[in-house]
Amino acid sequence: MTVYLVRRLLQALLVVLAMSVIVFVGVYAIGDPVEILISPDADQLERERAVVALGLDLPLWQQYLVFLTKALQGDLGNSFVFNEPALKLILQRMPATLELAFGAMFLSILVGLPLGLYAGLRPDSPVSKGIMAGSILGFSLPTFWVGLMLIMVFAVQLGWLPSTGRGDTASLLGLQWSFLTIDGLSHMAMPALNLALFKISLVIRLTRAGVRETMLMDYVKFARAKGLSPARVTFVHVFKNILIPVVTVVGLELGSTIAFSVVTESVFAWPGMGKLIIDSINVLDRPVIVAYLMIIVLMFITINLIVDLTYSLLDPRVRLESKGT
């Protein structure tokens, strides 16, 4: 196990390094670094001085080493727009994004599980067919358009929910959170639902498939034969067993939820790091772009690493297989 752990850690480190090269080359070599790093207001003399100061006259590999050393010290440059460290800007907005992502995952289980359970227990009823058709729509509908439609219905026509921003926040562990206030929750409802839509469909399908499979198992038949009430069979015997895979998959989706929050945050003007990156790309605030990409890559690699390690703990075949190759 230790050997596997070390190997896997080394692999992850290698990927981080590779991604840092890609991001570096992407931003510093494909784009014009002078234009990227020096304010467009600067005159010719200032430019030349800045080129030397920033080390842009050095060969590319040396520049990369400088970039890497600074990045390791947590210095990913200053934002042009805010004139603050890019890393700080992103970390400031991270709670908003995480809050939204976790809210969406919570919603997907809250809505998806009961619907999937119903569809699995009564596969032939018209309601179940409606649920399944709805889940196909959930997969096909473009997220951003659904967001707009939510705003149109609930904010413009009915006037029930606010359409933009985070609302009031309350402080917990030194960070600001919206889910602790009523106003914040009402601001969070639509974006979270929008972000959850895809996951709801996923949970419905997983639960339905799980229920249909589990209902045929011997232990369910036995529980029924014992004369247990259908409710007890469903909620204790069936439900417990489908919960584990469903929760696992939803957990795995955390990363992609955070990535797709870019879209939802833009629609609802949610001040998270997804909105920040889109704004930064639009105004070419490259240090923030680099910092965002590095952070999110790091996040993904960490999530993947944790998932792989958990799997190998649960399923020894994975470990043994990787030893063989």
């Binding site: 990535a259 797709f260 870019v262 879209v263 790309i281 999110i296």
Partner: peptide, 12 residues
């Protein structure tokens, strides 16, 4: 996720 890869490339 696909959106992240696309975002990265378009940022470049």
């Amino acid at each position: 996720p696909s959106i992240l890869v696309a975002l990265m490339i378009l940022a470049f």
